[in-house]
Design a protein around this nucleic acid. Structure first.
Lengths: 323, 323
DNA sequence: CTGAAAGCGCTAACAT
DNA sequence: ATGTTAGCGCTTTCAG
């Protein structure tokens, strides 16, 4: 039978209140402390988090909502979030929303029932409608109208940087390729500021921006490159997209980076110790995770939160650019 | 203020017991059911899982322990486990052990305190010592002396398959490269049965098996290939290891697959919709997740469990072999 | 500084 | 079939 607080109290010859104090680090007389600790040790007592949660209405749990943990971008982010949270004694309840609003709703329900203290979420559905505004929410990359905190990588800087680096490497005809959603997210700025920078520099820039979900990807990419045969500098909305485009380029007989240089976005890696997949603008996932955790803690503790935190990106040189 | 069961009972004009029955799907009179449901609706009542857990001593939570979710193998596995568990109404508490026994111990403590109903773990430390045998545990790949269930991919079949496929493609001098731990895990069989098959076929086979952690990787790999210049068929203990070896091979001026064909193990993908990285023996992660969840459920419900489940692997043809 | 006692919201056993 | 009631193990007043 598992030992309870009462058992400890009896063995130590003190009241349960005192045991509770010891567990929670409230000062008690040294002698008492020792007696209690000895009893705890002897009985192998472990506090019951559920009983505590019932009193305190806290769970020390944060829900992490991602479309799918089976994607290096999210799994790296999850890894960092988990690390930060663990250091603070928080547990993480993992939710793969699959981007499906229904699934998200189910999670929201679970979250409410489980006294989850806060949510860190990467989601592009109208989740804010379902999550009652009383549970702290930190959103990654996506803007919400309500007052949820957002943390994102600096897409403006990233877009400009992509242009600069390509330009610096002698490209003349620029292209942006990607997808977009109609939700207001930071992601959009990748294209916008890349394009702006190119125009400001008086360079030719062509755009192929897909609606989601993608249809006729291969065909449209081919057409695009045939129509714009002189493209020699490509900025892809993310690394995976860039990789997919490269596959088509290969079929078209174009060589990377000799004929066309490519910069991706995200800075995805297969795992901590492996290389980046291509030249890319890296999102500082570790910092983003840190800030997200910081903000969620602020919100939980009723401290003021930063409504929006934008974190600088970095340029990572890989094999898809020259030099 | 959040509505409680008492509120619902009062509004519906019934006793709390009845509300509890409705919540838990126990049959009540149709009229009563309707009254209660209406009250629940009206008050936006959500059951308090913590209060329930306190009575039932169950949390409907499974801990998933992996070295790091930031690795496509574990994140894919986690993805499938989460999916299965969610369908059963279970939550998942994610633990990145980083392979560090101390971290694992901390998690075990959290797990105990949080009434976690069971653990699914991929771990190579002596975790079984700390996890009191009363909490159901399903281990992936690793054997334990105690009676925890294990589920693993068929490494014997995989090893033999790797040989067969390489042999079929005309290789004459075979090699296995990898790492090993002294823990008793299925992984060992990858090498053992590959080697056996080669010997049985009267083929030359060379082995480079590193201790963990790896030291002098690059140097030793180079030496190995220089000493064994005729190797034309390589079986790598896993895909990442294979990729690393390939990098060295490139420096040595060997071409893959023209000079040397390579088969990996795991069948790691960057994400659901992307290709495998190389020719490989794929571990059926989805089935493994299914079985793991099945077994943990059996254990939780006191039903008999299969001590050991070995699941067949499949050969995936990629660009690192010919044909 | 510490003991006693009141509940947190729920389930389950017991009545009816 | 349903109302009533006794705790689950803890935190937190309230006294002392």
């Amino acid at each position: 039978m598992k030992a309870t607080m009462k058992d400890v109290a009896k063995l130590a010859g003190v009241g349960v209140g005192t045991v509770s104090r010891v567990i929670n680090g409230v000062r008690v007389k040294d002698g008492t402390l020792e007696k209690v600790n000895r009893a705890i040790e002897e009985l192998g007592y472990e506090p019951d988090i559920y009983a505590r949660g019932m009193k305190t209405n806290r769970s020390n749990t944060i829900a992490l909502i991602v479309p799918t943990i089976w994607h290096p971008f999210f799994s790296e982010f999850g890894f960092h979030v988990e690390k930060e949270l663990k250091a603070l004694g928080y547990k993480i309840f993992l939710c793969n929303s699959t981007g499906d609003p229904e699934v998200e709703d189910e999670y929201i329900q679970m979250i409410k029932q489980n006294k989850v203290d806060g949510i860190i979420g990467i989601t592009y559905t109208d989740i804010d409608k379902s999550v009652s505004s009383d549970i702290p929410f930190v959103s990654i990359d996506r803007h919400f109208t309500s007052k949820v905190a957002i943390v994102a990588a600096d897409s403006k800087q990233g877009g400009e940087m992509a242009f600069d680096e390509l330009n610096k490497r002698g490209c003349q005809h620029f292209a942006f390729m990607g997808t977009h959603q109609d939700k207001e997210s930071e992601t959009k700025n990748r294209r916008i500021y890349f394009e702006k920078a190119a125009i400001a520099a008086g360079k030719k820039v062509s755009i192929l921006d897909f609606e989601e979900p993608l249809v006729d990807f291969e065909e449209r990419v081919r057409e695009f490159f045939i129509e714009n045969d002189t493209i020699d500098g490509l900025f892809a909305i993310n690394d995976f997209f860039g990789l997919n485009v490269m596959r088509e380029l290969e079929k078209l007989g174009k060589r990377v980076p000799e004929d066309i240089q490519i910069i991706g976005f995200d800075g995805v890696k297969l795992s901590e110790e492996r290389d980046y997949l291509m030249t890319t603008i890296r999102q500082p996932l570790e910092s983003m995770a840190k800030v997200a955790v910081e903000q969620i803690m602020n919100a939980i503790n009723g401290e003021p939160i930063a409504y929006k935190t934008i974190i600088p990106v970095t340029f990572i040189e890989g094999w898809t650019t020259i030099n």
